[in-house]
Design a protein around this nucleic acid. Structure first.
Length: 804
RNA sequence: GCCAUGGUGGCGGAACUGGUAUACGCGCACGACUCAAAAUCGUGUUCCCUCACGGGAUUGUGGGUUCAAGUCCCACCCAUGGCACCA
């Protein structure tokens, strides 16, 4: 099938020329007005790039090309998030060492990216699994440790039985493993944590300073989960024990009719009376066996058993029965909750089931009882009732007064509580950065001195999932540790969560392999924060929160000068297949290879852009790629056959040209390439109707085209004798005055309905336009000889006449 | 249950601060070229009535504001994403 434009010859030609001319190399120190644009780096999978990759990486490339032509020094690096489970699972299956398969995959992906024609500076590419990179992952751990932000703690952790490793809370959000979907169980283990909770408030405050989608900020706010409330101390009747409860609504304290304690609470054994020992022990065993998911099953499924102990109410002195119930979480608040059935739905469910009295202690403005819900939990109007000295106070005032009174009596104090928990960074996996810690013969941990970094990942391991860290079986690893630190010393066998690797990679792009420093201060100051960061919304409470934490911590350590890593964030849409997310495991990944082979990179990526706005994505279908192919062929023919140096351009086409410059500039800026392309199509339709088009017009059109179809544009630019690369040309500007045409079409409405159109010269005065509108025959018909009551003229658009 | 986003032709989707809804493209139909097909070019294409001129209806549903509503307000329905015993 002979076609005029042949991408399979043209595209490699320009890719070669760009490479030879080093057109995309970026000098970090010489950049005058640097603009740092980053797309979340990919995992180097063994499969070929799929439609989603093309969408995610080619469209930002076009955006960066556009910004570059507008005069910005665009820094748009690429790397590989190369540690992780798939390579290890592949090793378990085939015996191929992860280092080998990963390197091969990375090399393959680079070839494919080059075929795409993206303008990455490959000299700056990163691979997080190389010792040159993970040396800094380990260095970061040492910094965290040195500054008291890394610690070891034992306790129950989220364990994925399929991945055979622990998971951070963020990676087990709905009780299922973020990677494989297996139900997560609880397991007692001693693990390394990073103290992200120390930054809870800062993470919250920082959101006000960055330009991120509101929905992502909301997700982070919910995940951090700040609540203002009050701790209250309760004496246990007949025992020398004081229990703390946390509540956000201390105004309801006179409504307390019971209290509940978490089965995991450390003091629980001392609180059980003999007659309840058997039932509580049985209940505790049952609770630990349940998964988090079972425990959350339905609000009505609340269960509990009495401890036999009673708490003394701090104001009334009443004896409040204390029960054990697994709806009370040990890792939020204090692990003990005061039960106020009249004003809390959960307490009400529990009280109804076990027959506790329901005592009202607040009422709404209209004197009715109500249960606090999420909507107006903190700003309810109404007043306190039947509450001793506090009776009659407005709710908010009473809440404060009660808190103050408790504080004065030293049996309570105001408290801010967060849902965020510390980041568990240990993983019982092989393919990750080893945690740079060794243990002395007494089992005490010691950070490895920096001079021993990179603390190399050993290679003498067998890839068998045993539930123990694979590094446990490395003879070399243990021998190395003993040689350096002494007999009986042991290395830490766990590796780090791969989210640690990706929490600082944006800084490492600025280092260009510098082994002395994580990042050079001057460069960091100049190029950070990332001006435009692109990635999926699924990272809202994982990568995007970890990276912010790490950046803030590094600032406090004096390493960097900014608090926030990503100034502006943009979420690309998701390309689905028959409504389902594409994934290798589901086997529904669509390969673009055939289409790219047939149509070339330009046409394929332009088609992806034409599908809709970049932020929206959509269901995949290749019907319609023909339309872009036709467009490209027609453009090629127009420029190669119809350009005439001597022709005087018609005023209509000139106005069209200025309009298309404006439209493409505005739309490309907000990543709405779909409408930018349709504007270019409209211009092409008009241009084809002309006898010839001027070289000037043609060159501008090719410049507009070049971010979206870079190879085609270079080819046409060369054809017209343009100097240098079109990518190095300045972006065309438009003249507002040229957008005005000689005549305009005005719609005429009668009683809100369009009844006719008139065409008038642009400068026609309003009176004249209205007169002409009224004399239009079809309009006359609807005026029925009457004079309009109201006559409205909207400049350049329409005339609205109202008769009745 | 709560929070967020969205609902426009056969399909992907346009429509800026309220101002001619359905741009652009796909698909489809008819025509030209061709022995024929593909490709290409031309014409038409929201639905209903009409040979036509023209008219009526229409942006998830029902109300409202306005000369004028896809756009603003109220109520509801549906879809997608996120959170979900956080005291």
């Amino acid at each position: 099938m002979p076609r005029d434009y042949n991408p399979s010859a043209v595209e490699p030609k320009w890719q070669k020329k760009w490479e030879e001319a080093k057109a995309f190399s970026f000098d970090l120190d010489k950049a005058k007005d640097p603009f740092y644009c980053l797309v979340m780096f990919p995992y180097p999978s063994g499969a070929r790039l799929h439609v989603g990759h093309w969408f995610q990486y080619s469209i930002p490339d076009s955006w960066c090309r556009f910004q570059r032509m507008r005069g910005k020094d665009v820094f748009h690096p690429m790397g590989f998030d190369a540690f992780g489970l798939p390579a290890e699972n592949y090793a378990i299956k085939t015996g191929t060492p992860p280092a080998e398969s990963t390197k091969e995959n990375v090399d393959n992906m680079i070839v494919q990216f080059k075929r795409m024609g993206v303008m990455y500076d490959w000299d700056k590419a990163l691979n997080t699994s190389t010792p040159e990179y993970y040396r800094w992952t380990q260095w970061l751990f040492l910094q965290m440790h040195k500054n008291g932000l890394a610690y070891r703690k034992d306790g129950n952790v989220n364990w994925c039985p399929s991945c055979q490793t622990v998971l951070a809370n963020e990676q087990a959000q709905d009780g299922h493993c973020e990677r494989c979907g297996t139900e997560v169980i609880q397991k007692p283990l001693t693990q390394w944590y990073w103290n992200i909770t120390k930054y809870s408030q800062k993470l919250l405050d920082g959101l006000e300073t960055i330009d991120w989608p509101e929905k992502t900020k909301i997700m982070q706010r919910n995940w951090i989960g700040r609540s203002e409330g009050c701790d209250v101390s309760w004496k246990v009747d007949g025992k020398d024990i004081v229990l703390e409860t946390f509540t956000t609504t201390v105004d309801t304290i006179y409504g307390v009719t019971f209290a509940v304690i978490s089965p995991e609470h450390p003091l629980i054994d001392q609180l059980i009376t003999d007659e309840h020992k058997a039932t509580v022990t049985a209940y505790k065993t049952l609770a630990t066996k349940k998964t988090d998911l079972d425990r959350m099953m339905g609000d009505k499924g609340k269960t509990g058993v009495p401890t036999g102990s009673f708490l003394i109410h701090p104001f009334t002195g009443a004896k409040v029965p204390l029960w054990v119930a697994d709806y009370v979480l040990m890792n939020y608040g204090t692990g003990v909750v005061m039960g106020v059935p009249a004003h809390d739905q959960r307490d009400m469910d529990f009280a109804k089931k076990y027959d506790f009295p329901i005592v009202q202690s607040i009422e709404s403005e209209s004197g009715e009882t109500f249960v606090y819900d999420d909507v107006d939990k903190y700003n309810v109007k109404g007043k306190i009732i039947d509450s001793g000295e506090f009776t009659g106070l407005p709710i908010l005032e009473g809440r404060k007064k009660i808190t103050d009174t408790l504080t004065k009596k030293k049996i309570g104090k105001a408290k801010i509580q967060y849902k965020l928990r510390d980041w568990l960074v240990s993983r019982q996996r092989y393919w990750g950065a080893p945690i740079p810690v060794v243990y002395d013969p007494g089992g005490n941990p010691h950070p490895i001195p920096e001079e021993h970094l990179p603390w190399l990942l050993p290679t003498d391991v067998e890839f068998k999932p045993t539930g123990k860290s694979p590094l446990t079986y490395s003879k070399e690893f243990i021998a190395r540790t003993e040689k350096i630190f002494g007999k009986g010393w042991r290395p830490e066998f766990d590796t780090m969560d791969t989210f640690v690797c990706s929490s600082f990679y944006y800084l490492r792009f600025l280092a260009e392999g510098n082994m002395e420093k994580l990042v050079e201060k001057e460069r960091e100051k100049k190029l950070m924060p990332v001006d435009f960061y692109i990635g999926g919304p699924e990272h809202a409470c994982m990568h995007l929160i970890y990276a912010r934490f790490v950046m803030m911590a590094l600032k406090d350590f004096g390493i960097v000068s900014h608090d926030e890593p990503f100034q502006r964030l943009f979420h690309q849409g998701l390309i689905t297949n028959k409504g389902a997310k594409m994934s290798k495991s589901k086997g529904n990944v669509v390969s673009p290879d055939e289409l790219v082979q047939k149509y070339g990179s330009d046409i394929f990526r332009m088609y992806l852009m034409f599908m809709g706005p970049f932020g929206e994505g959509g269901d995949w279908s290749d019907t319609g790629i023909k339309g872009i192919d036709r467009f490209v062929q027609r453009v090629y023919r127009l420029i190669t056959e119809k350009v005439n140096k001597k022709v005087e351009q018609s005023s209509g086409l000139t106005a069209g040209l200025h309009a298309v410059i404006k439209k493409v500039s505005d739309d490309a800026e907000r990543l709405h390439f779909n409408t930018a392309i349709s504007a270019m199509m409209e211009f092409l339709n008009a241009a084809e109707k002309e006898e010839a088009i001027s070289e000037e017009t043609a060159k501008i059109f090719v410049q507009l085209l070049s971010p979206m179809a870079p190879h085609l544009a270079e080819e046409l630019w060369e054809h017209m004798g343009g100097k240098g690369f079109v990518i190095d040309q300045e972006w065309p500007t438009y003249d507002e005055a040229m957008l005005v045409t000689d005549s305009m079409t005005i719609a005429v409405q009668v009683n809100g309905k369009v009844r006719g159109q008139i065409t008038v010269a642009t400068e026609t005065p309003e009176k004249e336009i209205i007169a002409q509108a009224k004399s239009n025959p079809n309009v006359q018909k609807f005026l029925e000889g009457k004079d309009p009551k109201k006559e409205i003229y909207v400049k350049g658009k329409l005339v609205s006449l109202v008769v009745s």
